[in-house]
């Protein structure tokens, strides 16, 4: 299970260098050791699914990648910039890293269009007209352009999550992080969001996705990472991961989620 094996054979785009590197990353919440010895390298264009039991530190890990959480030991390098206390660097990383949250976190006081143009206008300093054009392009892509002038509260959960994806895409991120993007949705809405994510993957977006949608992992991921108790226990291609898991913890986890 070396790095070389883990990098997928399925990729339709050539690897374009390393986008994320974590070296011996540790994090504590007070006394609680939530991330332990995380080593991870993500190549450009790679699609990675992270799974594991609840509380295993999946959210914490991807939130460290854009410094929504601070790590206490080790190095995290994103897009060539090391994440430290340096606020300027953090902002530089964040504008290249899109994030989609479990609970969407759209801005309720802004329309769908304003949600999407805000960061391009204020962070990328784009003119308003250009930002709106860009926003409409991505809203079309997530198939919700006709709702552009509504407020988030007027949309269904699935629609809100698609807007949240479009909002991130408007920043032209180099990497997209997804933290259980479908687990707050009613079952009939999961597919519309997964379809958008599959579309992104097909277009070559570098993605790290925490999800329990194993169908998505099988069909889209280049690599599946299994976490338990703050550690990366196993990482492998979906095929190997699901058909011949190495560790007992992985086997237990898989039997639990596949049988329920």
């Amino acid at each position: 299970m070396s790095m070389a094996e883990a990098v997928s054979t399925k990729r339709t785009f050539p690897a374009g260098g390393e986008v994320i590197r974590c070296q011996d990353v540790h994090k504590w919440y007070g006394e609680f050791h939530v991330l332990r010895n995380i080593n991870l390298s993500v190549q450009k264009g790679e699609r990675i699914v992270i799974c594991g039991p609840s509380g295993s530190g999946k959210s914490t890990l991807i939130r460290c990648l854009n410094r929504l959480e601070e790590h206490q030991k080790g190095n995290i390098i994103v897009d060539g910039i090391e994440l430290t206390g340096n606020l300027k660097n953090i902002e530089l990383v964040r504008r290249e890293v899109g994030m989609v949250f479990q609970h969407f976190n759209l801005f309720p006081h802004l329309t769908v269009l304003e949600n999407c143009t805000l960061a391009p206008i204020w962070v990328r300093k784009k003119p308003k007209a250009e930002a709106e054009e860009l926003a409409m392009k991505y809203l079309k892509r997530v198939r919700i352009a006709e709702q552009a002038h509504k407020y988030p509260g007027q949309l269904s959960g699935g629609q809100q999550q698609r807007v949240a994806i479009a909002r991130s895409l408007c920043m032209n991120p180099k990497v997209m992080l997804f933290d259980e993007p479908t687990s707050a949705l009613d079952p009939e809405m999961v597919k519309e969001v997964l379809d958008v994510m599959i579309g992104l993957a097909e277009d070559g977006m570098t993605m790290l996705c925490v999800t329990h949608e194993m169908g998505f992992a099988k069909s889209v991921a280049d690599r599946v990472i299994f976490m338990d108790r703050g550690e990366i226990v196993e990482q492998n291609t979906p095929n190997e991961f699901f058909n011949s898991p190495q560790s007992d913890r992985t086997k237990l986890f898989l039997s639990q989620i596949l049988n329920h």
Binding site: L68, E91, W122, V123
Partner: peptide, 30 residues
Amino acid sequence: IPKGQYEAADALGLNYWQGMRKIILPQALA
């Protein structure tokens, strides 16, 4: 204001004052 609003503002790369001015304060003042 829910924590998610601060996080979404941060994750988009808004700095502190932009996030406050555009996201947090309009909602908090209302």
